[in-house]
Amino acid sequence: MRRLLVGSGAAVFAVLLIGALLEPLPGGIDLRIAVASHMAASGVEHPVTAVLLNFRGYDTLLEIAVLLLAVIVILAGGLDPAVDRPRAANPILQSLARLATPPMIVVAVYLLWAGAFRPGGAFQAGAVLAAAAVLLHLTGLLPSWQRPALSLRWGMTAGFLIFLAVATGLLAQGALLRYPPAQAGLLILLVEAGLTVSLGLILAGLFLFLSRDPGDEE
């Protein structure tokens, strides 16, 4: 009965939503023109990167703060640190993972650099770094993180701190995150480099902190 009720409710909701989507918006604002007309002052050539780090940089600043918060809550939630037993390691997988890791780091740096003028950027680069760490963990080369060392803590917060420092540094010149057009490209690259390292460590940490609890201690 409840199933039927919720199911039909969701179906009605979907039909109404699609009906609303198909109606043309009266007097819609076209942001594409606004973005295109400010691209020259943004310091980068790829519009998505310009929106992420310049026009709507505030969103990205809050996003890295949210990610940091998620890791802190996971650590505070206190999964019991398990005894670290080495996983059954397959030597072929291990040597393949060893071979794959350096190119993955190169790909991450390329994505970071390419973000200025084509699809790519800090998020994708950070995701590739995190994937490399997860791969090393799954092949038994990297133990799960029991508790964060000091260098790891600094690495995870570096992206947020650099971004915040740049943002407040620019406050002296008038407004939060309003880059001067001449230095915008360099500042965005600096912020993105910090974001890449921190995002890689945070996303890897989400996996490596959670996987320290293998679940079979009983």
Partner: peptide, 23 residues
């Protein structure tokens, strides 16, 4: 939207999938 495609393949499918399977 190739930017989102890259992020979705790496994060949405890859990392989320690994987290779910591990849990």
């Amino acid at each position: 939207a190739p930017d989102i495609g890259l992020a979705e393949a790496a994060i949405g499918a890859g990392l989320t999938g690994a987290l779910l399977l591990d849990a």
